[in-house]
């Protein structure tokens, strides 16, 4: 599904961010840029937690600028607090199917399937505090999968994981996006992550979210704003 930010302006006090860009259906895009320049703000605006001061957000042609977060054709995995600690894994992921947790036997077998697919076999009854960081991330992805939304937003959910585990998770994301034909938009601090699964990258710096640019090219010939951030 195509995602278009049409002359979007975001104001948060003295902070301003402009975005005018298009993401083609089924593409994977990284968001990269110095801290505090508005990466999370951009993602939160797309997700519907922040209303832009001007401009429109379009998903597959329809205007979703005023839609509530849950009404948008997208799902987001946060940095933390993705899971309710007092609900089991099955319940936490089941929320992706039915927010009132009225789950049919068919729903339940779907949950089991998705848990297996995300490497969480047999953990239906476990509570999040008893899981490892990697397992918690997998569970968040499992729910995103169950929600079946065409656009996936990731706000650095794997930042706290070790390199091997992080790569494992990125591969899982890539595989999911490929099989489900999802449009992916993810924030990262790590150029390697971007290179690994995102052919294109949006640079957020100096008050602007620039249109996507091939990742390889951007990292090899970085503009000044990116240069100092990357430490080159």
């Amino acid at each position: 599904m195509a995602l278009i930010l049409d002359n979007v302006e975001i104001h948060r006090g003295s902070f301003h961010l402009n975005a005018n860009l298009t993401l083609k259906p089924g593409t994977s895009t990284a968001i990269i840029g110095p801290s505090g320049e508005g990466k999370s703000t951009l993602l939160n605006t797309v997700a519907g937690f922040i209303t832009p001061a001007a401009g429109r957000i379009l998903a597959e042609g329809s205007d979703i600028t005023q839609s509530p977060p849950a009404g948008r054709p997208l799902t987001m995995v946060f940095q933390d607090n993705n899971l309710f600690p007092h609900l089991t894994l099955a319940q936490n992921t089941g929320l992706g199917i039915a927010p009132n947790l009225k789950l049919s036997p068919a729903d339940k077998s779907r949950i089991t399937q998705v848990l297996t697919r995300t490497g969480l076999t047999g953990l239906e009854g476990a509570y999040p505090p008893n899981l490892s960081g990697g397992q918690q991330s997998r569970a968040a992805l499992a729910r995103a999968l169950l929600r079946g939304r065409p656009i996936l937003l990731l706000d650095e959910p794997f930042a706290a994981l070790g390199p091997a585990l992080r790569q494992e998770m990125l591969d899982l994301v890539q595989e999911i996006c490929a099989t489900e034909a999802l449009t992916l938009l993810m924030i990262t601090h790590n150029p390697d992550d971007a290179l690994r699964i995102c052919p294109q990258t949006v640079l957020v710096a100096e008050g602007t979210a620039q249109p996507p640019h091939p990742t390889q090219d951007l990292l090899q010939n970085p503009p000044t704003a990116l240069k100092s951030y990357l430490g080159i």
């Binding site: 977060p69 992706g96 009132n100």
Partner: peptide, 21 residues
Amino acid sequence: PLSQSLALTGWSKFRLVTWPT
């Protein structure tokens, strides 16, 4: 934010999120 993005509202939200906390 999580509840909002999952369309958890009204009684479901109360039962599943608010009450346990």
